[in-house]
Amino acid sequence: MENHRDTPHHHVARQDAAYDVVVVGGGTAGLSAALVLGRSRRSVLVVDAGEPRNAPAAHMQGYLSRDGMPPADFLAEGRRELGRYGVGLVNDRVLAVTPDGAGEFGVTLAGGGTVHARRVIVATGLVDELPAVPGLAERWGRDVLHCPYCHGWEVRDQPFGVLAAEPFNSHQALLVTQWSKDVTLFLHTVRDLPDAEWERLAAAGVRVVEGEVAGLAVEDDRLTGVRLAGGRVFPRSVLFVPAKPVPRDDLLGALGAEPRDTPFGPYPAVDETGRTSLPGVWAVGNAASPMEQVINAASTGYRAGSAVNAELVMTDIEAAAARRRAGAFTPRTEAAVARAVAGEHAHGLNV
């Protein structure tokens, strides 16, 4: 196999090309991991299917120095940075990751061919599954929202609606009162709330509307109200909805990665660096956690990238030590290595 070190970062991955690391997913977490690895002089391929979670949003918020930047521009800048370090980027989809029996992997691409990876970082993100209410998907990321930390400032002081859902019930309605004092909670399919939650809602000044939500009222491409099944419309400019974050974990599931329970359902079990239960496989960003915002996802990628590089360094050193113990190093070759090292030190002293 050839060791692939192409400098253009947009290219076709060649059959049987070999990489230190293949990163599956080119969102924030994946690009962050690839950046660290590229700067660590690793051969890296990022395989990006082009499905970032925040694509519907016009801007991303809360990322220091990039607050308000369009998500597409942010990712484009990240890709440009990778090009400085010879990181490869292919627009494709990974169909399978197959252990090779020696602790490494074959990575099969939808566009054809299989590349070799010593380590794999899965950064495939998640999909937000919306409640079955007509019109939500069309306005998702615009005036139908899920996160006040992402969008609250931009819609502050407008009339908010909140769609209730188990198991959180009124929690989000209480939270968003920090951004607007005009908040209405629509119970939708939630039949009742505990007495303590009714009390908190009253204390926070949140109105509660019973009855199932059937759709939205929209005028001039702007949300103007929430429509109940009975036909009554409640004027609202913003609606927060309880999207269910579902990880894109097909690859990890096929490999047999151990899951962990979260309030949103099962996610891959990972340690603090993103290492899964599968030797040689990491999961980062929203592929490993439903709660990561963009800035957090970048952090998880950074930690995974540095951990993968460190593991590869030690793996190679241990292999060299094993060869030495097996007699692969003779006194003559050791002397040659010593002379070379001494020459490098002397060169450094003369600079």
Results as ranks from 00 to 15, higher is better:
1 M>D: 05
10 H>W: 04
11 H>W: 07
14 R>V: 14
18 A>V: 14
20 D>T: 02
21 V>H: 11
21 V>T: 12
22 V>Q: 05
22 V>T: 06
22 V>F: 01
23 V>G: 05
24 V>L: 11
24 V>F: 09
25 G>A: 08
27 G>E: 05
32 S>H: 12
32 S>V: 06
44 V>H: 04
47 V>Y: 01
47 V>S: 05
48 D>A: 11
48 D>K: 11
50 G>P: 06
52 P>V: 00
52 P>Q: 00
54 N>A: 05
55 A>K: 14
61 Q>G: 09
62 G>K: 15
63 Y>C: 07
68 G>V: 09
68 G>W: 04
73 D>P: 03
84 R>H: 15
87 V>K: 01
88 G>F: 01
89 L>H: 10
90 V>K: 03
96 A>R: 03
96 A>I: 00
111 G>V: 06
114 T>F: 06
116 H>I: 05
118 R>K: 03
122 V>M: 14
124 T>A: 01
125 G>S: 07
127 V>L: 04
129 E>W: 01
132 A>V: 08
143 D>Q: 08
145 L>G: 15
145 L>F: 12
154 E>H: 06
157 D>G: 04
158 Q>F: 03
159 P>W: 01
164 A>I: 07
167 P>Y: 12
169 N>P: 10
169 N>Q: 13
174 L>S: 14
176 V>H: 11
179 W>V: 13
181 K>D: 07
182 D>L: 00
183 V>T: 06
184 T>S: 08
190 V>K: 13
191 R>V: 13
195 D>Y: 08
198 W>T: 08
200 R>W: 06
203 A>R: 08
209 V>G: 14
212 E>F: 02
213 V>E: 13
215 G>R: 08
218 V>W: 09
220 D>M: 04
220 D>Y: 05
224 T>Q: 02
224 T>V: 05
225 G>M: 02
227 R>C: 04
229 A>K: 04
229 A>L: 04
231 G>M: 00
235 P>A: 13
239 L>F: 13
240 F>E: 02
242 P>C: 03
248 R>M: 12
250 D>F: 06
255 L>R: 13
263 P>G: 07
264 F>G: 08
265 G>H: 15
265 G>A: 15
266 P>M: 02
277 S>F: 12
278 L>R: 06
279 P>Q: 02
287 A>M: 10
289 S>M: 01
293 Q>G: 01
296 N>D: 15
300 T>G: 02
305 G>C: 07
305 G>H: 08
305 G>Y: 08
306 S>P: 10
309 N>K: 06
312 L>G: 06
319 A>D: 09
324 R>M: 12
332 R>W: 08
333 T>Y: 07
334 E>L: 12
335 A>D: 10
336 A>H: 01
341 V>S: 03
342 A>R: 15
344 E>L: 09
346 A>I: 07
350 N>P: 03
351 V>C: 15
